[in-house]
Design a protein around this nucleic acid. Structure first.
Length: 991
DNA sequence: GAGCACTGC
């Protein structure tokens, strides 16, 4: 009822005038003449593109005719807002005017004095008031408090000691202890404990299998208990991966004959959405790096802990680097804190230098020797020759720049080999060709046959850069009788491949059966298969990077670093001696860099910057220059700019109230904004589903050789949606409904629809987490669940969801430009259907990623897309996920630059035009929105949708306004209608 | 016509 009233109300605000036929003709003569010439020419030359076959003048005239035609089309409808709409918008403006004044002041500190005395204000001011006051204040109070937290409790010390004595006499404990004592790390137990006692920071480097992860924390715990100070011991051990944290915790609990999760246990773990707490004192908590960063928000000096152990520091992932920087700064404030950095053998000097030349302890690994066989040895051993894949005759035989580059690098090595007479001629000949590094499938096939015929039993692991190569080799293997399924178990590992039925990948195969595993670098660290004896390493990996000059994420196949090559090789020697076949020469390996660039130098930094801000770590540039290997200044600048544009930071680089919320949500800022907007606009569930997916991963999986079925299914699911995001919202909704019918129903739903059950479950849980966050930040009422009817009052309104998506994802918009297709055929010769052109304002032409549901959408009209991911690979820029969105939403939520061009843009692209009073009204409404959002984020509360509330009036006006375009593109009526039911039903004709 | 891998009280 109420909705209907508003609908009518707004539809009176926005009128449309189909004027097209009444427009006076302007200088029609020359385009008409151009058409005539064109038609004659086109008749003469029936084949090919008519435009291409025209000469200078005719071509110009043809273009002129087309432009004119477009203009006439464009002027068909002019969008007008009735005068009293302005007055109505004025009303909104009045309501939120005070906030505008506040926000326009330069001084943040006084700015929020005028806000009410809400709990939000207090918290927010605390953050704004910043570094010194708060921190030093904290330090004083907390030092006293610390003596409370970690003060030794004599009784507890005794109790822990007695328990420990009891444990030592336990038979099972003794049995495991004997095994533990065989680990290499035990030989240096005393040194390690002493070094940590004497130094605030110690680097311990040891190869895989030395036992550092599970043993060192126990050395420290046992030592504390034995010296009757168990109650003051509290260790936090971080792992970069969830699985590693869980398994380390379980392993340690087992060794101590305890059960992980028992409240008396000394071991626990915490990862996102999952925690098993250990006892409060005398305990070890394994967690992921992300958890530690979140802990820092509430406990900036990590006062709950006496020891921080950071594992896998050598991987140099973003969060570990961040933690290193923060921890180094808090050392002077926590003199009693002990920090232990654990890393692989390599690169420990850099770490030691970073921590004021702290001591480094080296521990030998306990893996088995792995023999290395390089490309030249393989070629010589197998007598393998590369057949040139390129045409010998014709232009192709000339070397291109890649050949020349290859030769420059390899020639000296080949010459040296030649001089030494150490390799047969055919090997040298092969190495001179670039093919020796380009397409190794046939070589791998030959090598596999060799291993299977000549070498002992054992699983074979092959490292590939990506999907394409895995797919190709898998196909070859399946079509080759040598590798029949009776004798071989073939596994493919890729994050996008389904993992069901793959438990046997970790199990010992039946007698006489050999495991073959084709993998990306997922098997380099994340997955460990113990019985690998042979590794075949093609030496390449797809590496993401960020190009600050072009502001683009890239994904390219590159040569790996020596450290990674070493890691891959090490995968062969876990249970017995192994062999690593490297599909690159010694010469090539000598060009490898020692270490890959740390992640912090390869990504955008918006999220990290918000963390710097919420943790009050000072100016961003200054902080980021303190990290072990600082990111490019330009990258920092770009990220700051985006945060500013999102409204998360002000000119002085301080958090705004919006930024304050975004910094505390466990997502990147633009996804965080989506979550807030979903709550504000009453489309909670779909927005949470979209946000969860954008911040975790796409749940769709694609089995090899089922691409067609996969695509068909996705097309079926996404019918009429034209949006990857709405597709996600739909499948998440259906999945959650299936979950209510039980585990089996949910699993079946996933199986039928090419979805990963584990990813879907995680996403569903993440939605719960976001919902809880929103409740805690008071954007939802205390009782609101994900499916709360009030919070989902607009969840069925697809155009609105898309409009909100726009508001959250901006500035990530792209324009779909259709050249010629909308021209009436009778007036012009048939123009060949040109492929859709998609452009972004900053990159120019881009492509829609083939994985997107919109990849093969036929666009009837020019329109706008919103996207979240954009990446450059294989020389094109791809929009990874995108939604066709209501154009008015883009223009309404778009930035000021876009706004100023509104008039021109609209009339040019969308076939209708603003009149000036509408422009003004739009602008006022937009100002209202900006102010309203400022107000909402600084006065958290649930949206009041009751008919007489200001919330409701403004939001409904925005909703109707931004989604009005849904029907305005209907060429038949030329009318601009705002009825949502109609909008939903006629979506097909929208685009 | 293409999809390295992780993470979050």
């Amino acid at each position: 009822m109420e909705k209907k009233k508003i609908t009518q109300d707004i539809s009176q605000l926005i009128l449309s005038c189909p004027l097209g036929n009444k427009l006076p003709p302007k200088k029609r003569s020359s385009p008409q003449r151009g058409l005539k010439i064109l038609r004659e020419k086109a008749v003469k030359k029936k084949e090919g593109n008519p435009k291409k076959q025209l000469d200078g003048k005719a071509k110009g005239l043809w273009d002129a005719a087309r432009t004119r035609k477009n203009l006439i089309e464009n002027e068909k409808s002019i969008v007008k807002v009735a005068q009293y709409a302005n007055e109505k918008f004025e009303g909104f403006f009045q309501n939120y005017a005070p906030v505008t004044v506040i926000l326009s002041e330069a001084n943040w500190r006084s700015k929020y004095e005028t806000l009410d005395d809400s709990p939000f204000r207090k918290k927010f001011i605390d953050i704004l008031e910043g570094n010194d006051t708060l921190h030093s204040g904290l330090k004083k109070d907390k030092n006293e408090e610390m003596s409370n937290i970690l003060a030794s409790l004599v009784k507890l010390d005794e109790k822990l000691f007695e328990e420990f004595l009891c444990k030592i006499s336990n038979e099972e404990f003794q049995k495991v202890l004997e095994l533990r004592k065989k680990l290499p790390v035990w030989s240096q137990k005393e040194d390690i404990v002493k070094a940590i006692k004497d130094n605030q920071v110690v680097v311990i480097s040891g190869a895989t299998g030395c036992g550092k992860t599970t043993q060192i924390c126990q050395f420290l715990l046992d030592q504390a208990i034995e010296s009757r100070s168990g109650s003051t011991f509290c260790a936090l051990c971080t792992q970069p991966r969830r699985l590693a944290a869980i398994s380390a915790a379980h392993r340690v609990a087992e060794e101590r004959v305890e059960v992980c999760g028992d409240p008396r246990s000394s071991v626990g773990y915490q990862i996102r959405l999952e925690r098993l707490n250990p006892r409060e004192r005398g305990s070890i908590l394994f967690c992921t790096t992300g958890i530690l960063v979140q802990l820092l928000i509430s406990d900036p000096l990590l006062e709950k802990y006496s020891h921080i152990l950071l594992d896998e520091v050598h991987e140099r992932d973003l969060l570990t680097d961040f933690i290193l920087t923060v921890v180094r700064d808090l050392l002077p404030k926590r003199p009693k804190l002990r920090v232990i950095l654990m890393s692989a053998t390599i690169n420990s000097n850099l770490l030691s230098e970073y921590f004021n030349n702290c001591p480094v302890l080296n521990i030998d690994g306990r893996s088995f020797p792995v023999e290395t066989v390089y490309l030249e040895d393989i070629l010589s051993k197998l007598d393998f020759r590369f057949r040139s894949t390129r045409n010998r005759s014709g232009a192709d035989s000339h070397p291109n720049h890649l050949d020349i580059e290859y030769n420059q690098i390899m020639a000296p090595f080949v010459e040296e080999m030649e001089a030494n007479h150490s390799y047969p001629f055919h090997v040298l000949k092969s190495l001179r060709k670039r093919e020796s590094e380009e397409s190794p499938e046939m070589l791998i096939m030959a090598l596999l046959k060799h291993i299977c015929a000549r070498e002992a039993d054992g699983a074979i692991l092959i490292f590939f850069p990506g999907w394409e190569q895995i797919k190709r080799l898998n196909k070859l293997l399946l079509s080759d009788r040598t590798f029949s399924s009776r004798k071989f178990l073939i596994f493919t590992l890729h994050s996008m491949l389904p993992t069901f039925n793959q438990r046997q990948i970790f199990e010992k195969p039946p007698r006489g059966v050999r495991k073959l595993i084709l993998s990306t670098n997922i098997a380099e660290t994340s997955l460990t298969i113990d019985d690998i004896v042979y590794v075949i390493d093609c030496g390449k990996a797809k590496l993401p990077n960020f190009d600050p000059l072009k502001k683009l994420n890239t994904l390219n196949s590159e040569w790996i670093a020596l450290a990674n090559a070493h890691q891959r090789q090490g995968r062969a020697g876990r249970t017995k001696p192994g062999i690593c076949y490297k599909l690159y020469s010694r010469g090539r390996e000598s060009t490898f860099v020692p270490h890959a660039l740390p992640e912090i130098k390869r990504t955008r930094l918006e999220e990290l910057i918000l963390r710097v801000k919420i943790l009050k770590l000072g100016q961003v540039q200054a902080f980021l220059r303190k990290v072990p290997e600082p990111p490019d200044d330009l990258t920092v600048k770009i990220s700051l700019e985006l945060l500013h544009e999102l409204g998360a930071l002000d000119d002085a680089e301080c958090l705004t109230p919006l930024g304050f919320h975004l910094a505390q949500l466990p997502t990147d800022p633009s996804t965080g904004k989506l979550i807030l907007l979903g709550a504000i606009f009453g489309c909670l569930e779909p927005m949470l589903a979209i946000a969860a997916t954008l911040s975790f991963k796409d749940p769709f999986v694609m089995p090899l050789n089922q691409e067609d079925n996969y695509r068909k299914r996705r097309k079926f699911l996404a019918e009429k949606l034209f949006s990857d995001h709405l597709l996600i919202a739909k499948v998440m909704h259906d999945f959650r409904a299936a979950q209510l019918d039980g585990h089996v129903a949910a699993k079946n739903y996933c199986h039928e629809n090419f979805l990963s059950t584990s990813t879907m479950t995680m996403l569903s849980n993440m939605m719960e987490q976001f919902c809880r966050d929103l409740r805690e930040r008071q954007f939802l009422s205390n009782s609101a669940s994900i499916s709360d009817p009030v919070a989902n009052i607009n969840s069925k309104n697809h155009p609105l969801i898309l409009a909100v998506l726009c508001a959250g994802l901006l500035p990530n918009v792209a324009e779909v430009v259709i050249a010629g297709r909308s021209l009436p055929k009778r007036n012009l010769p048939k123009i060949p259907t040109s492929p859709v052109k998609v452009k972004t304002p900053e990159d120019g032409p881009v492509l829609i990623h083939p994985r997107s549901i919109n990849y093969d959408t036929v666009f009837a009209k020019s329109t706008w897309l919103c996207y979240h991911g954009k990446v450059k690979s294989s020389n094109s820029i791809y929009l990874q996920d995108c939604s066709i969105v209501p154009p008015l939403a883009v223009l309404f939520f778009g930035d000021e630059k876009l706004f100023n061009k509104k008039d021109a843009k609209l009339s040019k692209r969308f076939g209708y035009k603003w009149d000036s009073s509408t422009m003004e009204a739009t602008r006022s409404l937009r100002t209202c929105w900006d102010n309203y959002l400022c107000h909402r984020v600084s006065h958290p509360g649930a949206t009041d949708w009751s008919s007489d509330s200001t919330d409701s009036a403004l939001l409904r006006a925005i909703i109707h306004f931004t989604t009005a375009t849904a029907v305005s593109l209907n060429e038949d009526t030329g009318l601009l209608s705002v009825a949502h039911e109609e909008a939903n039903n006629s979506r097909r004709s929208m685009w």
